[in-house]
Simulated scan of single mutants.
Amino acid sequence: MGHEPDRYGPPHFDFHFYGVDTAAVAAVDCQDATQPDPATVPAGWAPPVPPGVPDPTVMCVPHMGYHALPLTEFSGPGQFQAGAFDQVMVAGFYRGQLTFIEPMVTLAALERKSDFVLPVPRPRLGRPTRYPTTFKGTYDAGTDSYTLTFSSFEFRD
């Protein structure tokens, strides 16, 4: 199934890859409206909550947080591109920190049975870790399946 906003209405898969433990995910109750420092939002991504939103908590999803999208998803400030999306990488934040990255891929895109690559957001993390720089979906016709791979990890803080 799809979800709001309308651009993300087509049936699709949301794959959440968290960089925090399960207790931190469970604690995302949307009471904390702290937004990331603009300098930590990945280059090419819009901030999770646009400036001027009176109550940022309405844009929070429990057990996930706030979603930052690539600027390519917008035709102008706060205005989504016309039509439905096909595939996109999302960056998730809570308490001002990146907590997950989320490839979203439509069923229609997967049914094309072809490889695809999505850009990986590269924010300042505020914690030392190995972090992927590449995400690829590789289709295998022999098994009629995909392998989803994050690769080219680098040390980040």
Rank of each mutant, 00 (worst) to 15 (best):
H3E: 15
E4S: 13
E4P: 05
E4K: 07
E4D: 11
P5G: 04
R7N: 06
Y8Q: 06
G9C: 11
H12M: 10
D14C: 01
H16E: 02
F17T: 00
Y18H: 08
D21V: 02
T22H: 02
T22L: 12
A23E: 14
A24T: 11
A26L: 13
A26E: 14
A27T: 06
A33H: 11
T34Q: 14
P36Y: 10
P36L: 11
P36K: 09
P36H: 10
A39V: 13
A39P: 08
T40D: 15
V41K: 06
P42Y: 03
P42K: 09
A43H: 11
W45E: 04
W45A: 05
W45H: 00
P47L: 02
P48R: 04
P50N: 09
P51Y: 00
P51R: 12
V53N: 09
D55G: 02
D55T: 02
D55W: 03
P56L: 09
V58E: 13
V58R: 05
M59Q: 15
V61G: 09
P62S: 03
P62Q: 13
P62D: 05
H63M: 09
M64D: 02
M64H: 09
Y66Q: 00
H67G: 03
H67S: 04
P70A: 09
P70W: 07
L71T: 13
T72C: 00
T72I: 02
E73R: 06
E73Y: 07
F74R: 07
G76W: 03
P77L: 10
Q79L: 14
Q79H: 07
F80T: 00
A82W: 04
A84L: 06
D86T: 15
Q87H: 14
M89A: 06
A91T: 03
A91I: 03
A91D: 08
A91P: 07
G92E: 14
Q97P: 00
L98E: 02
T99I: 11
T99V: 15
F100M: 08
E102Y: 00
E102H: 11
E102L: 03
P103A: 04
V105I: 14
V105Q: 05
T106S: 11
T106N: 01
L107V: 14
A108L: 07
E111T: 12
E111G: 02
E111H: 12
E111M: 14
R112W: 07
D115F: 08
V117H: 06
V117K: 10
L118A: 10
P119T: 11
P119R: 10
R122H: 14
R124A: 15
R124H: 15
G126R: 09
T129Y: 00
T129M: 05
R130W: 13
R130G: 10
F135D: 00
K136C: 01
T138V: 15
G142L: 13
G142C: 01
G142W: 10
G142Y: 10
D144G: 04
D144V: 04
D144T: 08
S145D: 06
L148V: 09
T149F: 01
F150C: 08
S152Y: 02
E154F: 09
D157A: 14
D157H: 13
D157N: 15
